[in-house]
Design a protein around this nucleic acid. Structure first.
Lengths: 231, 231
DNA sequence: GAGTGGTCTAGACCACGAG
DNA sequence: TCGTGGTCTAGACCACTCA
């Protein structure tokens, strides 16, 4: 299949095993590495780009290359991330704005409807972990600041239906810099729309997770009626 | 934020609009393009790599760069892709093998249990569209060759629960060449495990979709009991 | 064999971070 | 100011496709 493995793949493979065995020092510099492997800087950069796309390393302009901490793979299920880690903390920025475009359509409200936006960034230690943008009609906005993390059911309106659209894509430049990931590292994007028992959309959330971290888990329990309807 | 847009982004933006307005001829050559923009080949390649990662173009070694047909975004919901297109056809390869590793764990059967593997590749016209690997215990294997596309409910065992794990990642080299996508184009990977009413796992499926095509949609209807349990 | 894309080099220049 | 990463260049060489 690949009779002549390219130089950058060979170097990337070597660095990968060094990372796996903990032999690679954090903050390793490009010039040292390119000298060690006797390749040009461009080739070494290409090798590092491969590792970056896998989420193994992080490059910081003016400082060096750093091995990313291996974080356990989390699971997003039913609007909640598990396991819930005590080391995760969340910063929330609230803004008042007016509906327009995509958000207006998701919430099923006219343009210029007053909304409250919650911009949530979760960290695990120093590392940014996930990003959430939540939009709530302003008359419904309360202490819903916990985003996609567990929250008491009483705080939110009674929900009747949650629709979650999941897609895979590359991060926008803003997302990449906010999450401190390579723009080549895929992200899992979840668009969540929650409606109450009256059918009114009470929340639209745009969630973004780096692809090397969480996954989403969806379980369908088929009742007898569902199976009848299916046939 | 980005006061000095890099040259390759400028070129990529320009090519993007040309693609959107249909002005870019298929099979456009790198040498012509680098001459047109007066940049080095490396810079032009970087610009094309951006478009490749968005799934807009496809490069074929020795031939040229080709604009990918814009395919409508499909939705995977409840094991079915919608809308169902008459132009989609599926090739299936069946193999007999024995459980091991991940598949063994997913199906919850011991290693070396006889399995039937269905390897399904769907095309829309000439373009590969999605990839599915399905594993079924051999004693349950029947005419289940339609993979994740609609199939009569009678053909499959009565299902009680479907669990779907969704993740975003870059394709493996094999997936990239099979689906004819860039290795930089994110894919949506769905691991589906279906159990019958007795709790026996009757199917494990590994589905891979190019990130520029389908998305997955999951709907949760919260009944009164669910909401009680949530509180 | 001519033309294409894929890889690599050596080196220039700019932008960022820290002392 | 110095060392780092980020971008770009000009050109060499190989691999693939097609006439």
């Amino acid at each position: 299949m690949e009779p002549v493995p390219s130089l950058r793949h060979t170097i990337a493979d070597d660095l990968r095993t060094q990372i796996a065995t903990g032999r690679l020092k954090p903050g390793e510099r490009q010039p040292q590495l390119s000298a060690r492997y006797k390749v040009s800087t461009a080739t070494l950069r290409n090798a590092l780009a491969l590792l970056q796309a896998e989420g193994l390393i992080e490059k910081i302009h003016g400082k060096g290359n750093f091995v990313r901490r291996l974080l356990r793979r989390l699971t997003y299920e039913g609007g909640v991330l598990t396991p819930t880690l005590p080391t995760v903390h969340v910063t929330v920025r609230t803004a008042q704005l007016h509906a327009r475009g995509t958000v207006s359509a998701l919430l099923n409200v006219p343009s210029r409807t007053p909304l409250t936006e919650y911009l949530c960034l979760s960290h695990e230690g120093e590392s940014p972990h996930s990003l959430a943008r939540m939009y709530v009609p302003r008359d419904l906005a309360r202490a819903e600041v916990s985003c996609h993390w567990p929250k008491p059911a009483e705080l939110r309106p009674r929900l009747a239906e949650i629709r979650e659209r999941v897609s895979a894509r590359l991060p926008t430049p803003e997302e990449a810099s906010t999450l401190r990931i390579s723009s080549a590292l895929a992200v899992l994007a979840i668009t969540r729309v929650s409606a109450d028992t009256a059918g009114r959309v009470v929340e639209a959330a745009l969630l973004v997770f780096p692809g090397d971290r969480p996954e989403a888990l969806f379980t369908t329990h088929l009742t007898t009626e569902d199976r009848k309807a299916e046939g």
